[in-house]
Amino acid sequence: MNVKPEISWEDFEKLDIRCGTIISVDDFEKATNPSYQLEIDFGDLGIRKSAAQITKLYRKEDLVGKQILAVVNFPKKQIANFFSECLVLGVYGEDKKEVTLVTTSLSTKNGMSLG
């Protein structure tokens, strides 16, 4: 397993990673790889959309209400006809097709920062 190059603390501080609650999930039919379209409530930051390739381990109905972590300060990314506004964080399985979401162990206020 390769380790990525070392970064500075200042590099890490540029990432804005926040807690949010998934409020809706739809199939992303136009995605190249099986994906969901998520709407995530980040509290004072508002509701943001994200495309996530998490269909192997998660059913739509199990995702609504789940708190996740996401990077919220990337620029919007167009994927087919959809604009992803944040990057949901997950851990790849060995085949890189199974993604386990990064979640909170206890409920937190939406929009709180990773620290």
Results as ranks from 00 to 15, higher is better:
residue 1 M to G: 12
residue 2 N to T: 13
residue 3 V to Y: 07
residue 4 K to L: 04
residue 4 K to R: 01
residue 4 K to N: 02
residue 5 P to V: 01
residue 6 E to W: 01
residue 7 I to L: 08
residue 7 I to G: 02
residue 8 S to T: 15
residue 9 W to T: 08
residue 10 E to G: 03
residue 10 E to V: 06
residue 11 D to N: 06
residue 11 D to W: 00
residue 12 F to M: 07
residue 13 E to V: 03
residue 15 L to P: 07
residue 17 I to K: 07
residue 18 R to M: 12
residue 18 R to E: 09
residue 22 I to Q: 07
residue 23 I to R: 09
residue 24 S to N: 14
residue 25 V to A: 10
residue 26 D to E: 15
residue 27 D to T: 15
residue 29 E to G: 04
residue 30 K to T: 08
residue 31 A to C: 13
residue 32 T to E: 02
residue 32 T to S: 10
residue 33 N to T: 07
residue 33 N to L: 04
residue 34 P to F: 08
residue 34 P to Q: 08
residue 34 P to A: 14
residue 34 P to V: 06
residue 36 Y to V: 11
residue 36 Y to Q: 08
residue 38 L to Y: 02
residue 39 E to A: 07
residue 39 E to K: 15
residue 39 E to H: 11
residue 39 E to R: 09
residue 40 I to T: 07
residue 41 D to F: 04
residue 42 F to P: 14
residue 42 F to A: 11
residue 43 G to W: 11
residue 43 G to S: 13
residue 43 G to Q: 08
residue 44 D to L: 07
residue 44 D to W: 02
residue 44 D to F: 04
residue 47 I to L: 05
residue 47 I to D: 04
residue 47 I to E: 11
residue 48 R to C: 06
residue 48 R to M: 14
residue 49 K to A: 10
residue 50 S to F: 05
residue 50 S to R: 01
residue 52 A to C: 15
residue 53 Q to Y: 01
residue 54 I to P: 07
residue 54 I to G: 11
residue 56 K to T: 14
residue 56 K to W: 10
residue 57 L to D: 09
residue 58 Y to T: 14
residue 60 K to L: 13
residue 60 K to H: 14
residue 60 K to E: 15
residue 60 K to G: 12
residue 61 E to L: 06
residue 63 L to C: 12
residue 63 L to W: 09
residue 65 G to D: 08
residue 65 G to T: 08
residue 66 K to E: 15
residue 66 K to S: 07
residue 67 Q to N: 11
residue 69 L to D: 10
residue 70 A to W: 06
residue 70 A to L: 05
residue 71 V to M: 14
residue 72 V to C: 14
residue 74 F to E: 09
residue 74 F to V: 04
residue 74 F to L: 15
residue 74 F to D: 05
residue 74 F to Y: 13
residue 74 F to A: 09
residue 75 P to K: 04
residue 76 K to R: 05
residue 76 K to F: 00
residue 76 K to H: 06
residue 77 K to N: 02
residue 77 K to Y: 00
residue 77 K to A: 10
residue 79 I to N: 00
residue 80 A to Y: 01
residue 80 A to H: 00
residue 81 N to C: 01
residue 82 F to Q: 01
residue 84 S to I: 01
residue 84 S to A: 00
residue 84 S to M: 00
residue 85 E to F: 00
residue 85 E to H: 01
residue 87 L to H: 03
residue 87 L to W: 03
residue 90 G to L: 00
residue 91 V to Q: 13
residue 92 Y to K: 05
residue 92 Y to C: 04
residue 93 G to N: 02
residue 95 D to C: 02
residue 96 K to G: 00
residue 98 E to A: 03
residue 100 T to Q: 12
residue 100 T to F: 04
residue 100 T to S: 15
residue 101 L to D: 12
residue 101 L to S: 07
residue 101 L to Q: 04
residue 104 T to Q: 10
residue 105 S to H: 13
residue 105 S to F: 09
residue 105 S to W: 13
residue 107 S to C: 07
residue 107 S to I: 09
residue 108 T to V: 15
residue 108 T to Y: 10
residue 109 K to C: 08
residue 110 N to H: 04
residue 110 N to T: 04
residue 110 N to W: 03
residue 111 G to Y: 08
residue 111 G to E: 11
residue 112 M to Y: 07
residue 113 S to E: 05
residue 113 S to W: 04
residue 113 S to H: 11
residue 115 G to V: 11
residue 115 G to I: 05
